[in-house]
Design a protein around this nucleic acid. Structure first.
Length: 495
RNA sequence: GCCCCCGUCGUCUAGCGGCCUAGGACGCCGGCCUUUCACGCCGGUAGCGCGGGUUCGAAUCCCGUCGGGGGUACCA
């Protein structure tokens, strides 16, 4: 058992703040988070913003917002601090410079002066000869004189890490034992000629210094693992980090359309869209967990707490999963149905504000009371919270702005439909008690018993007249909530 | 080219040599319920990439092959 396995678990999430946060990223964060929580460990949130040309503050802010919305809390990292900060790589540049120098001083790294053209030429030659195309180690053992000669030419060196010549075998947490032959893992650049440290150095340096025990990341990083392990072994020699090498687990990609992983091109990849579309964080989380993991063979709806309780990285599937928005919505619908009514009312309010149905300050007491009464009517009718706005619009919209869908009007409010509305109006006009029960009794009596209509034909026209659509919440309850005055006005309006 | 990973219904998955005439979920198609739409319930559709082994027995193990993906950067 490795030392990383016997220590308290520390995992991390370390995105680069470029563009909008996406689903693949969140799934990786979720698994790392769940692993730490399951083992009672710590979760670190670090930002890898070493590429000033692509990183933006806006993207950073979005990342924070989205993690908070999802509820993936972190014990150490940006915004909250911790003992191993700072947690933005842009603020750690001096650390990387120092680490690079130590590696050189201890003989683990060296300056290489090959020009890009020379490298490419040799790479092509190696490839043509059927050999691996990585760095050939030409400048591995340059004498001080040779180095001086290159410097005299005006060449700026990169710093390369000197890979020990041995095979690399490690046990991936999701894939099992993996081996890379010595000849396939060559010396790699850790600092650019312009002095900028590369991901290859900054990421392992921070993981080591922050005591990360389990590195869970995308499978695109699988083949760079031997290099990181080698770096860790060197770190142990020069006193950086805790002196141990973490365990690695490479998560499968989340696929979009075609055979490519989910990218900006796929509309469902943008995490920022989920909240406005009406997804619940717990619904999205549940769905993302299903991309590569399952809680049981006959179950796929669970809470985040249940996921934490059951999550094991070894149970994660190694093959890529395709994102299916339909299933994601279905699962979201199940989570909506799991919400207590008062909680649903709470979550619904921002959407009514956004739709302009409530003022920006939130609902008036009357509106809140109406929403509370109406919420049960739509609870089982939506997969997305935004659907409630469409279904309940007729109750909250100003009467002057109430409109009836043209198609529905044409289909339901023809001459016979208007006869029905007229009769319904008469039956409701001086109804004593205004409740769903009495309304149903009055309408059934007048339209079904009185006119001899089938329920569908009897209630359809009334439904369209008062809700504006052939599809609506249950009619009698809707009429009750709309109130006598407004109901009669809407019936009159179509006659 | 070289290296690595992956391969069960359309999709997500269960399956770790016999419980599999392969289970669940989403989707889709029927039906029931029903004032519309949903929910719920019932039923159906559809899969172990291929070929060899090993074994009494293979979706499960081995080899090969094909397919897909990733890496091979002074990207991450």
């Amino acid at each position: 058992m490795s030392e990383a396995q016997t220590r308290p678990v520390v995992t991390r999430f370390c995105p680069s703040p470029t563009g909008n946060p996406h689903v693949g990223m969140a799934r990786t964060a979720l698994f790392s988070w769940a692993y730490a929580r399951h083992h009672g460990g710590k979760f670190v949130f670090r930002i890898e913003d070493t590429d000033a040309s692509r990183d933006t503050q806006e993207s950073y802010d979005l990342l924070i917002d989205v993690m908070r919305w999802l509820g993936l809390d972190w014990d150490e990292g940006v915004e909250v601090g911790g003992p191993d900060g700072p947690y933005r790589q842009s603020e750690r540049m001096d650390i990387y410079a120092e680490v690079a120098q130590k590696l050189i001083d201890a003989g683990f790294a060296y300056k290489a002066y090959d020009s890009p053209e020379e490298l490419e030429e040799r790479r092509n030659a190696a490839r043509a000869a059927g050999k691996p195309s990585g760095y050939d180690g030409a400048h591995r053992d340059l004498t001080p004189e040779q180095q001086a000669a290159y410097e005299a030419e005006g060449r700026e060196p990169v710093i390369r890490f000197k890979m020990p010549q041995k095979d690399w075998t490690f046990t991936d947490l999701v894939r099992g034992e993996i081996t890379f032959g010595a000849e396939n893992v060559q010396d790699f650049v850790i600092v650019r000629a312009n002095g900028q440290p590369l991901y290859t150095l900054t990421n392992p340096t921070d993981d080591a210094m922050m005591g990360i025990t389990h590195v869970l990341r995308g499978e695109d990083l699988l083949s760079s693992t031997p290099r990181q392990i080698a770096l860790y072994e060197a770190f142990a020699e020069i006193g950086i980090g805790g002196g141990f090498t973490p365990e690695f687990g490479h998560l499968p990609f989340v696929m979009g359309t075609g055979n490519a992983k989910l990218s900006k091109r796929d509309p469902e990849s943008n995490l920022l869209d989920y909240k406005p579309k009406g997804f619940l964080p717990e619904g999205l989380l549940n769905y993302m967990a299903l991309l590569g993991w399952s809680i049981a063979d006959d179950r796929d709806i669970f809470s985040i707490a249940e996921m934490v309780e059951a999550f094991e990285i070894s149970a994660v599937n190694a093959n890529p999963a395709r994102f299916d928005i339909k299933k994601c919505e279905a699962i979201n619908g199940d989570h909506i149905r799991l919400l207590p009514i008062d909680e649903l009312v709470e979550r619904l309010q921002p959407y009514f504000v956004d739709a302009g149905l409530f003022g920006t300050g939130g609902p008036t007491p009357e509106q809140l009371s109406l929403l509370t009464s109406a919420a049960p009517l739509v609870h089982e009718r939506m997969a997305l919270l935004t659907e409630a706005v469409a279904m309940l619009n007729f109750l909250f919209v100003d009467d002057a702005e109430f409109v009836i869908n043209d198609d529905d009007r044409a289909k339901s409010l023809d001459d016979s439909g208007l006869d029905v509305v007229r009769t319904a109006r008469g039956a409701l006009a001086d109804l004593g008690e205004w409740t769903a029960e009495s309304i149903e009794a009055a309408l059934r009596g007048a339209l079904i018993d009185g006119m001899g209509l089938k329920p569908r034909l009897a209630f359809g026209p009334v439904r369209v007249a008062i809700t504006g659509s052939r599809i609506s919440p249950p009619l009698f309850e809707s009429v009750e909530l709309l109130g006598r005055e407004r109901t009669l006005a809407r019936l009159d309006a179509v006659l």
